[in-house]
Computed example of a mutant assay.
Amino acid sequence: MKDQVFSGRDVEDALATASQALGVPRERLHYVVLDAGATSARGLNAQPARVAVLMDRTAPPPPPAPPDPGPRAEKDPRAGARAMVRAIAEAAGLEVGAEIEEAPDTLTVRIEGKDVAFFLDDDADVLEGLDHLLQRMYQRALDPRRLVVTCEGHRVERDEGLRRTAQELAEAVRRDGVPRTTRALNSYERRVVHVALAAEPGIRTYSVGEEGNRRVTVAPRAAEGEPEEPAGGG
């Protein structure tokens, strides 16, 4: 590429002209001073300064980086779950990772590592929050399968606790015939309650409430020939 010559009142002025004309920052110009210029006795420029810009050594500025589109949800639930756990680990400085286990009806995200206590503190609020978030994100992608987040046997203990609670509610309903309703449960937890009481004599279960605040009602099974209140789904 042919070198280009620029002139100005002095060398700096000539370089400023070159920088503007070429679209290259002043500090990235490679040049040779051809003439430093001369000033007359009255302080006027009798001869302009001239510089030759070495075009084969002058690199144009790098193109601007594309704008950051921000975080995007992975379409694949497996990759998305791993990415979510990795983001939490990096933000909180944790040594944890996610292992994925697949079954015909469930995709289990198992959190492992030396800092899993972070997810289990305060009655596993962080773990339950992550479980709820991932279920909302990938419910359609996984349907009809369910997504479950667990670590160190927490889900096993949690499920057993739900079954005990379901049995206690069923016994109370059998005693006085008054329906009982659980706390708000996610879809997986509601299924645990429904399955736990499916074979209980004289007991039926159905879900009530809006998504995000759905609960399971445990009620007496209607006598033969009597209409039953319609179930509210899972």
Rank of each mutant, 00 (worst) to 15 (best):
L34I: 03
A89Q: 03
S19W: 00
N213H: 15
D121W: 07
R86V: 12
L162M: 06
E229H: 11
M84A: 12
R78K: 11
G23A: 05
L147K: 05
P61E: 10
R164A: 10
G161N: 13
V33N: 01
I88L: 15
R214V: 04
P179Y: 11
T182Q: 11
A172T: 08
L127W: 12
V33W: 03
R145L: 08
R158K: 10
P61N: 03
A49L: 10
T39R: 13
G153W: 08
Q167L: 11
D131F: 00
M55Y: 06
P144D: 06
G202I: 10
K2V: 03
E226N: 08
V178M: 11
A223V: 09
Y206G: 04
A231K: 14
L169T: 11
R190M: 03
P60D: 07
I100Q: 07
R86Y: 02
T58F: 09
D115V: 09
D131Y: 00
L162I: 04
E211V: 05
T108S: 11
A41K: 07
E160C: 02
R174D: 04
N45D: 02
M137V: 15
A36S: 14
A18L: 05
R190F: 01
V32R: 09
A223Y: 07
R146S: 15
T150Q: 04
R214E: 04
V51K: 00
A231R: 15
V173N: 05
L120A: 08
L133D: 10
Q47F: 00
D10M: 03
Q4K: 12
R214K: 15
Q47C: 06
L54P: 03
L15N: 02
V109M: 11
R158T: 08
V195T: 13
M55P: 01
A198V: 07
V192H: 01
R140G: 01
D35V: 06
Q20K: 13
R180S: 02
L44H: 04
R155M: 14
G225C: 13
G37S: 09
A98F: 03
P67M: 07
A166D: 07
R163E: 12
L169N: 08
L127I: 13
V32N: 02
V96N: 05
N213A: 15
R50G: 00
A73G: 10
D3C: 02
D131V: 01
A92M: 12
E171R: 14
A41F: 12
T165R: 13
P62Q: 06
G232I: 08
P64Q: 05
A196M: 03
R145K: 15
V126M: 09
E168R: 15
L142C: 11
L147R: 03
F6E: 02
L147D: 02
